[in-house]
Simulated scan of single mutants.
Amino acid sequence: MGPHVSEMIAESQLIVGWDAEPVDVARHIHAHPTLSEAVGETFLTLAGRGLHQQ
């Protein structure tokens, strides 16, 4: 629940429906600043390519 939750639901539904692997999602652009960017960052990390890792 939240003011922009539809942004994350749409992206998550596409990922689940596509049965996508982290590397599949990580190669797509996720606009900044958006909540879908957080989804993209998560999948980049899962694919071993996180941008903001220390």
Rank of each mutant, 00 (worst) to 15 (best):
M1C: 11
M1S: 14
G2N: 02
G2T: 05
P3T: 06
H4V: 07
S6E: 15
S6M: 12
S6W: 05
S6I: 04
E7F: 01
M8T: 00
I9W: 00
I9K: 06
I9L: 08
A10C: 06
A10Q: 07
A10S: 10
A10F: 12
A10K: 06
E11C: 01
E11I: 07
S12Y: 05
Q13T: 09
L14M: 10
I15R: 02
V16R: 14
G17F: 05
G17M: 04
G17H: 10
W18C: 14
D19H: 09
D19W: 03
D19G: 10
D19F: 01
E21V: 08
E21G: 03
E21M: 13
P22N: 13
P22W: 13
P22S: 12
P22G: 11
V23K: 14
D24S: 02
D24Y: 02
V25W: 01
V25M: 05
A26Y: 09
A26D: 07
R27T: 09
R27N: 08
H28F: 10
H28I: 11
I29G: 09
H30R: 02
H30C: 04
H30F: 05
A31Y: 04
A31W: 09
A31N: 10
P33E: 00
P33C: 07
P33H: 01
P33Y: 00
T34E: 06
T34F: 07
T34L: 07
T34H: 08
L35S: 07
L35G: 07
S36R: 01
E37Y: 05
E37W: 03
E37R: 02
A38G: 09
A38R: 02
V39W: 07
V39H: 03
E41F: 04
E41A: 10
T42V: 11
F43T: 00
F43C: 02
L44R: 15
L44W: 13
L44P: 04
T45W: 05
L46E: 10
L46H: 10
L46T: 08
G48P: 13
G48E: 15
G48I: 14
R49N: 13
R49F: 11
R49T: 12
R49S: 13
G50M: 07
H52I: 09
H52A: 14
Q54D: 14
Q54V: 09
